[in-house]
Design a protein around this nucleic acid. Sequence first.
DNA 1: AATCTCTGCAACCGCAGAATC
DNA 2: CGATTCTGCGGTTGCAGAGAT
Length: 276
Amino acid sequence: MGRQPCCDKLGVKKGSWTAEEDKKLIIFILNNHHCCWRAVPKLAGLRRCGKSCRLRWTNYLRPDLKRGLLTDAEEQLVIDLHARLGNRWSKIAARLPGRTDNEIKNHWNTHIKKKLVKMGINPVTHEPIGKSSDEDHQSSLQMNLPTDHQTNGPENPKSHHNVSSSLVSPTGSTTDKVTSLEDGSITGGGSEDDEFLLNNLWVDDGVLGAPDDLMGNFRTNNNVMDIGFLSSWDENCSWLMGCEDFGLSDFGFNCFSDMEVVKQVEPQTMEVAEKQ
DNA sequence: AATCTCTGCAACCGCAGAATC
DNA sequence: CGATTCTGCGGTTGCAGAGAT
């Protein structure tokens, strides 16, 4: 028998989300969390696929998301993690609070990849271009690059060393780990090894761990909704899990005044929010 | 000022594994 | 235990804005 289908494709809207749709989704999840994504669009009054709702929420509307370009430290960590995990963006994203796999994937493809090539580093193998005889990698790499990079080629031949050595992180902690990885101590795909090493990497990298200034912001296409009274990653997460206990006005969601707010704000929660 | 080209990002698509019946 | 569906992931696409001509 199995389950019911995810969504009937008929009447499902595609394309960019409107501010109105964002509001509906945010309000629904605030009041109900999400029981299952399949049910979300119908219950929230959206003509979207549940999959699309999940994507919109996780990649754009989640309150714990950071915004803007990755910092140097984050970029360095992405490079290090990519060197050992490959294109497992979700695993990489799990190590960068407030960043999504989609965001990291995009940043890799648009920024980091080019930067590495300019430095003479193969972004696939993380080895100096020309060092290995894997011409397949190089040719495939060039296929994926814009023409300006194809014509210019590596502009920095002096960078014939490990990526992680050339892009030194502020802590300097990640470089050594990468070196140890490349001597064969890491087995590709070994999830337990990955977890162990990544946890070490995570723990000692205070720069990236749960930033103090990580303030959750809800944003729509037109609005940024401050929920800055939450001061840490953990608080953000726990708040999310218990979001049904709060009303929208607690978070400064006055922009939703035109929307029907289902739940009433409890006086106690107001007090808590004000104290923060 | 108008047009063209390039770049970056949000969103979609298809697949695989997990979950459910 | 097989069939079916759900969820999450990675690859890819399409559009909008920026920059170049």
